[in-house]
């Protein structure tokens, strides 16, 4: 009974959040904040992509590299081959996923710190290639003139930040719904099992390599989609959009939000995307503050904001549930 009511509550929260998110452009005035909201959604898609990789216990520092693959692919497919946006968008995700599939078979054998170091090198390598493969990437100065997204059955292109917002929101919701369903399926449990212990997972009949590979491919697919979105949103891409620090940023969104739930990366993207705007006033010290905040976070909230919220909510609920002298109105609520 408790489970059912909390499921209702969850459903209400989700519907309210979706409706709220849908209404954002009508409340937010001025392109600047819309720009930030658009960036939040793009970052959330990317952070979700990293979350599924983290779920299998692999910490990747190459997420920005896969984002780059998607961004360059999508830009060139629309610029050179004049493909419609939607086709380029999907292909860019598929391309990033294909690269992940090819690499994954080999690199997912690496565990723990070795995987971190390899993906760190991989991101640097993709960065160097994006600087030097001038014919494909435009070299250091990147690609200009990337078109705004177009959609079938929609006239014109999504020129404005508000129009783009709905596209990004739709992609984000689809990604979220897909991952939520996946995490609740047996495959979700398999991923948890692999993260906890590969031997144990193997003993219970999962093939850890297969589980990790599927997660890595899905995560990279989302990275590719995110890359495509960002290319058509900013309409300009250059190698410096995809450095190692960008990968760190996606990892931070997961860690600061909390990587053990889907809410984590989303909250992380909501916090970290506008953060530089708030640090602007501390121009001189912003870098120091950023580093300091990061260290304090690791020290005091290592499991992220969601776990902290979760714990405090639980504490409040427990406190409310505790029968006190003046009857227990709480109990009535939980009755059907």
């Amino acid at each position: 009974m408790r489970a059912r009511s909390s499921r209702y509550a969850l459903a209400i929260v989700i519907v309210a959040a979706v409706v709220g998110a849908w209404l954002v452009p009508s409340f937010v005035h001025g392109n600047f904040w819309l720009h930030i909201f658009d960036m939040m959604l793009i970052n959330a898609v990317l952070a979700l992509g990293l979350n599924i990789i983290l779920k299998t216990g692999q910490v990747s520092l190459a997420h920005a590299g896969f984002m780059a693959i998607g961004a360059y692919a999508s830009a060139q497919l629309t610029l050179k081959l004049a493909l419609p946006f939607l086709a380029a968008f999907l292909l860019s995700g598929i391309l990033a996923a294909a690269v992940a599939l090819l690499l994954g078979r080999v690199i997912l054998r690496l565990k723990g710190v070795y995987f971190i170091l390899f993906t760190f090198a991989l991101n640097e390598f993709i960065f160097l290639v994006s600087k030097d493969a001038v014919a494909l990437t435009g070299g250091n100065t990147g690609l200009v003139g990337i078109k705004a997204p177009t959609l079938p059955f929609v006239a014109g292109s999504l020129q404005t930040k508000a129009q783009f917002y709905y596209l990004a929101l739709a992609v984000f919701l689809l990604a979220l719904a897909f991952l939520a369903a996946l995490y609740r399926s047996p495959f979700g449990r398999a991923m948890d099992a692999v993260r906890e212990s590969e031997q144990l997972a193997e003993a219970t009949g999962y093939d850890p390599m297969r589980v990790k590979l599927i997660a890595f491919v899905i995560g990279s697919f989302l990275a590719g989609l995110g890359g495509s979105l960002s290319a058509h949103f900013l309409r300009y891409i250059a190698p410096f959009n995809f450095t190692f620090w960008e990968s760190v940023n996606f990892l931070l969104m997961n860690i600061i939000g909390g990587s053990f739930s889907l809410a984590g990366p989303i909250i992380g993207a909501l916090i970290l995307t506008p953060l530089p705007e708030f640090l602007r006033d501390y121009l001189l010290w912003q870098q120091f503050l950023y580093g300091l905040i990061l260290m304090l976070f690791m020290r005091f909230l290592p499991d992220g904001v969601t776990s902290a919220i979760g714990m405090s909510v639980r504490a409040v609920v427990d406190w409310v549930r505790t029968p006190r002298r003046k009857g227990a109105p709480v109990a009535a609520e939980t009755q059907p």
């Binding site: 971190i116 990892l251 931070l252 580093g291 300091l292 990061l294 260290m295 290592p302």
Partner: peptide, 30 residues
Amino acid sequence: TVFAPLRGRELSMLMSALGLQIAIQGVMAV
């Protein structure tokens, strides 16, 4: 001060090291 409290949590230590890198660079740039 930074790493001893995080002993055994490899990922937290790694992220803290990144934070330390950013912070030292930031202070020295100023």
